[in-house]
Amino acid sequence: MAINWFKYSAPSTFYWLAGKLAPWFAWPSAVLFAVGLYIGFFVAPTDAQQSEAYRIIFLHVPASIMSMFIYLVMACYAAVGLIFNTRLSSMMASALAPTGALFAFISLWTGALWGKPMWGTWWVWDARLTSELILLFLYFGFIALHASIDDPRRADRASALLAIIGSVNVPIIYFSVKWWNTLHQGSTVKFTGTSMHAAMQQAMFTVLVACWFYAIAVALARVRSIILERERNTQWVAELPEARS
């Protein structure tokens, strides 16, 4: 069956599609969170070095991965919007930014709460932590810049440029533990595999997928409001049953 993908790049069709898809990501996300945290807290053994404190990893690593991944997806959408002048891509970029910022914050927050008992400090200005903080500020910058320009298409273009330039920070975060001598430990998840206990790995990857589904569901739900707001003068929005009094 041939699917006309361009059909879904029309905001009117995507509004409908996003509404249909969002629950299919939201509920599995909740289930995966429950399963992942069950494994993480009841199946995974106590760590030999870090005792129970290490269990922060099941949230810290997925949140950190998501903060970087969402940034790249956001930058891609923004770039597509900039190059092909597609409104919907820019709207998706705007819809992803707050969720990405939230994961960056969770990454820093859980990192601080993990750093205190393990390193003896909430924060150090080391390469990994600083570059992740810059990522959070890049999200804030993207959101603020977009909000500060009245014309939405101009706002899309300006913030797209910021998103694209800022994406150089993502590999810096990832490789920071290799390039510089940092207090932060090396990557837990490497392309060559990991040295973790099986149950720990399962918990972490399950929570990662849960976070991924959560991000998709929330971004889809958020983009629907953005679409309505920006397309409010179109005929299809005027005819929308839920927008009628």
């Binding site: 005792s51 404190a53 949230l59 810290h60 969770i106 927050w109 859980t110 709460l113 205190k116």
Partner: peptide, 13 residues
């Protein structure tokens, strides 16, 4: 003894 750190992480998230 790590309850504050662990639940502080998950609670805030």
């Amino acid at each position: 003894g790590y309850g504050f750190y662990v639940w502080g992480s998950y609670g805030v998230a």
